[in-house]
Design a protein around this nucleic acid. Structure first.
Length: 279
DNA sequence: AAGAGAATCAACCGCGTCACC
DNA sequence: GGGTGACGCGGTTGATTCTCT
């Protein structure tokens, strides 16, 4: 059907924003908010696409934006969440107040990906740099945190797990009233309805296989995790993808009732299922 | 000091989803 | 139920900055 362009491109300015444009955008949003991004540039008197205005505001002009270097905690959190969620930058950004998805995406591609890769391949990062030309890290020169010894949260015990990961789980729990399906999720600390889960097993396909086979302690844990299945669908579960007319939208929020029903259906039917196919 | 290459990051682009008509 | 518009997300690009030789 052909998609209409997001805005009338002709005559609209592209590229870097000037100080003046920033000021116009800031003052307009402060006065009127941004109920309609598409109309905003016209109303504010900017020769920009609404999309561009939105991006500029979200990524740069918002008052609660935290500028400057990422702390080690932030970087570790990003690495950890990325292990759990993949490239879901907006979800990761939601756990890092003041940071934008764009910023996190950039930091990932420029620093953290290399760090994790080096760790996985067992290459000592200090030797790395391959020290191609004994290059001093540019990050350091910019004040960015450069810690070459990578902390793997998969090997950090529960006691020292960053708070963020626990918060993440609790924050995205649908309220129990939203669904007729209730798994036993309790947390004595704050009364919130969730059960702490072991992140290590969450990441392991064998965990899902075990859960689906209906054996072992991971069964209930897997059931709990279905409520937070914002992460990538484990390959073990891919076989369920088309088994229900309410096919889950893999990769989107799973907290609507349809998805809940589907997952509930899957786990309650575990006993009926034939042997899982080999992959 | 200058040039080359690498790194960084703001901004753009295209697509998916959702809400409204 | 289908069409359309708006928003938001993730991937990518390209200008700028930095470091090394």
């Amino acid at each position: 059907m052909g998609r209409a362009p997001c805005c009338e491109k002709i005559g609209l300015k592209k590229g870097s924003w000037s100080e003046e444009e920033d000021q116009i955008l800031i003052s307009y949003i402060q006065q009127h908010g941004h109920p309609n991004w598409r109309a905003l540039p016209r109303l504010a008197g900017l020769s920009r696409c609404g999309k561009s205005c939105r991006l500029r505001w979200i990524n740069y002009l918002r008052p609660d934006i935290k500028r400057g270097s990422f702390t080690k905690e932030e970087e570790d959190t990003i690495i950890h969440l990325h292990q759990m969620l993949g490239n879901r930058w907006s979800v990761i950004a939601a756990k890092l107040p003041g940071r934008t998805d764009n910023e996190i995406k950039n930091i990932w591609h420029t620093h953290l990906k290399k760090r994790t890769k080096n760790q996985q391949t067992g290459i000592n990062a200090s030797n790395d740099a391959s020290n191609k030309h004994n290059k001093k890290s540019k990050c350091a020169s910019k004040g960015l945190y450069v810690e070459e010894s990578i902390v793997s949260h998969r090997h950090v015990d529960q006691e020292h797990k960053p708070l963020e990961s626990k918060q993440f789980i609790s924050n995205i729990q649908p309220s129990s009233s939203e669904s007729s399906i209730t798994y036993s999720m309790t947390n004595s600390d704050n009364g919130a309805k969730y059960e702490e889960v072991n992140q290590e097993t969450f990441l392991d396909d064998s965990f899902w296989l075990e859960a689906l086979s209906g054996e072992g302690d991971n069964v209930m844990e897997a059931k709990s995790l279905t409520n937070i299945s914002c992460g990538e669908l484990p390959t073990s579960l891919a076989c369920f993808k088309n088994t229900n007319t309410r096919t889950p939208n893999i990769g989107c929020n799973m907290d609507n009732n349809n998805d809940m029903y589907l997952w509930y259906d899957i786990f309650t039917r575990i006993d009926e299922l034939p042997e899982l196919p080999e992959f």
